[in-house]
Design a protein around this nucleic acid. Sequence first.
DNA 1: CTGTTAGCGCGTTCAT
DNA 2: ATGAACGCGCTAACAG
Lengths: 321, 321
Amino acid sequence: MSKTTLKDVAREAGVNFTLVSKMLTNNPNARISKETRKRIEAAIEKLGYRPSASARALRNGRSRAIGMVMRDLTNAYFAHVANAALKLFGSRGYQLLIALDDGGDGAVQSLLQRDVDGILYLGSKLPDVRKIPVPLVLNDCILDGADCVNINFDDALETALSRFDRSAVVAGLFFENSLWKNSLARVAGRLGFDRASPYTLQPDLEMRTRKLAEICAQKPDVFISSGWHTTKILGGILNADTSGYSPKIVVHANCAGAFPKVRGICGAVFSSTTEMLARSCEVLVGKIENKPTALGEIAATYIAADSEQFAALADGEFRLT
Amino acid sequence: MSKTTLKDVAREAGVNFTLVSKMLTNNPNARISKETRKRIEAAIEKLGYRPSASARALRNGRSRAIGMVMRDLTNAYFAHVANAALKLFGSRGYQLLIALDDGGDGAVQSLLQRDVDGILYLGSKLPDVRKIPVPLVLNDCILDGADCVNINFDDALETALSRFDRSAVVAGLFFENSLWKNSLARVAGRLGFDRASPYTLQPDLEMRTRKLAEICAQKPDVFISSGWHTTKILGGILNADTSGYSPKIVVHANCAGAFPKVRGICGAVFSSTTEMLARSCEVLVGKIENKPTALGEIAATYIAADSEQFAALADGEFRLT
DNA sequence: CTGTTAGCGCGTTCAT
DNA sequence: ATGAACGCGCTAACAG
């Protein structure tokens, strides 16, 4: 029942314990005879030996654990993301530690305490970089001192907007710090839409609903909705409206299936969450292992609502794209 | 950027580093003067010191980490469970390490390597207890050498079955090792149903679908369906059936919302997943901290499909009960 | 009240 | 090819 250590294995195999260590770490300057190697392997098998991650972390200064600050897994999108991340980092030999975002920096602190080698931050507000002494990767934002894996929305958004009249009132529904805001500003400027404005939504569903109602009251002609839930709430409000108000909606499609059925959706800016995650993993692990990896940008494309691609996206069970 | 240690704090505060340790661990036989305490606290704050979990684990023999073997988080039920478990163990001061079930014992091994103090096993097949030298808790099964938190289905199932004729052909749709099987056998025996039989379903959806089609071909009068997805698949098969076959279905309700709309559902055996999780956490932590906790049994109740309770359960978004 | 010491399991460097 | 010694950061037993 008590944990077996290197020494136990060594004793069982009749060798010095450092020799076992050398074998386990594939230490090159230690050539071990076939015979002893066999004996050691047998001993490991027999005793069910497993090196202690704590001891290794202490000794090596690296834990091969990575922290992920996550939003509510009750949200299908984040649950899928967590699932993918677990597999992704697992296949790279890292244990993923998930910490639920508490709005403050509790999650980050608890992860750092666990000696994680790096953090993939998917929380709702930007973390304080100065308090994070390990490689840090975020998505869809800009943060000095951290690596941000971002989607380039510009081209897709330009395609989307170019279908409307320049005089249209455009309302962007974004979260705090999202690059959607910058993208909308750039594209609107480029195309001459001077009645386009971004609104900042809260993660909290109630606050978001209230805010959306306010925005709807101003009756914009076009919505750019960056989120699945936001689109759904928006749909609810519009359905309840009897004044004949009927705006167009461009959605962000970073997941598929059971797409909100909302009247007025005319197209989607599509990006691959899987690709974004893979890149984030690549960048983070690269940083940790000192193998430089270019950040790059994830591409986004525009898909019209009447296309086959859109139908495929809207169809079936909820899933990551 | 380099991690600050106890010694750094001690140097900053001008004291011996063991004194800092004593303060942090609330060591009773170390009375520290108000003054030095202040200085130490200031130093900790200033340097942003955080004790290393690895070092503590090595030293204490306990990591305050708990492993959870999980099924696919893509499944809403498990995602909700993971979310709840993360909060539950977090509030007890434990970091939860999630490992995705790989069908073998890879998940367990990787967790043990991380020096977890205990394991909550929610994988699809029973683990090998001999290879698990830490407290182990499972749900809905019996396993020697482990603590199993179980639901008592008997009374609820008896209520459900008593509404049918004893001559009815009853098909139980269960997973391997589930106690549903035993419960059905007991209750059927007690009530004199001698045409009741359990079927073992596979987690894999395709295999499950095939198996269900086979079972349906035998046209049982009553189904006892232990799972949300199973009920959904069953519904699909029955809907496609044009022969007029229309069996009654009793479902297991351990989650709520967006309940599968399937013709023939006449009632549900209700149990609380939240309660089950809380109990599992209690038992596991109790075992780890050497505070004996009774296993007990989670209660289940019968709810008829035409009742208000059932409607409430079927209504709204997917959620844990 | 404060300081000294030993050792948790492991990997590395250096000496056989 | 093998072993001895050291220290990673921390806690606890013991000494001043």
